[in-house]
Amino acid sequence: MATLELEKIFLQKIDGEVKIEPKDWMPDAYRKTNIRQVSQHAHSEIVGMLPEGAWISRAPSLKRKAILIAKVQDEAGHGLYLYSACETLGITREETINDLHSGKAKYSSIFNYPTLTWADIGAIGWLVDGAAIMNQVMLTRTSYGPYARAMVRICKEESFHQRQGFEILLVLSNGRDEQKAMCQDAIDRWWWPSLMMFGPHDSESTNSEQSMKWKIKRKTNDELRQNFVDMCAEQVKVLGMKIPDDKLKWNEERMHYDFGEINWDEFWNVVKGNGPCNKQRLEARKKAWDEGEWVREAAAAHAEKRKKRKAA
């Protein structure tokens, strides 16, 4: 079949909300975009385990410890679902991991920030997972089948993440003065990076248009960011805390909250690799991978031996 004909069928599916599946014909750019987006989403889940995992050993109660382990485990699982989806696009997990370690592939910049106190764990749950959920709910309708299905599974698990984070902050906000201060401090540090999670302004987003046309993306960066601000501006009232933005104000005309401008210098710096934790995050992942080499080899070798013995 001629490429033009295949393209036509492809676009018909997109327009008709029919999912594109692994063996379907797809434009090379569509395949590449999905590989990049899905694998970077997967990397984010895995790298995200590090800032939160750091507090498992110091969780302030056994219940919180158990909850945090379960949550971080979920992140690993999410990474796995996404690597799975990625492999259906014709790339191996190893290749995607190499891209991560070489710096070629990105992961969500938010994880390049340090978790300095226990309250950070709450802030991450409320803000970071909250932002992620917004993005993810939208992605359950993405056009590539395996990606959409992975997102459905992830969304089911993700709401517990946001709730446990908010609960941590709620307990702090009702606690002693030092706990309240810890809570506000964490919100102060995580607010702006969370807004940055939605990416550059639509006007500076080089691929938004094509991603929207191919229904890889269903809402724009700014749209999602606005929804997020509106939601958090209300939720923060329950905590009795403040969002660190003196321009945050309800706009009756727009029926949305107005908010301040993101520090785009910081945004691009962190993306470029100059954030507080970029190096250590990547080094931790490389170390885990490199030090795990002998384990993977041994397991593969043993499986080979078993197969040979069985055949004999």
Partner: peptide
């Protein structure tokens, strides 16, 4: 739980933290 995020392979990271969770539940 110290292995969380540092396991030799993702699937095993999940396995060892599962075990950790079970143990903490027992405790």
């Amino acid at each position: 739980a110290e292995w969380c995020g540092h396991g030799p392979v993702l699937e095993q990271d999940i396995a060892i933290t599962n075990i950790s969770l079970d143990l903490i539940g027992q405790s």
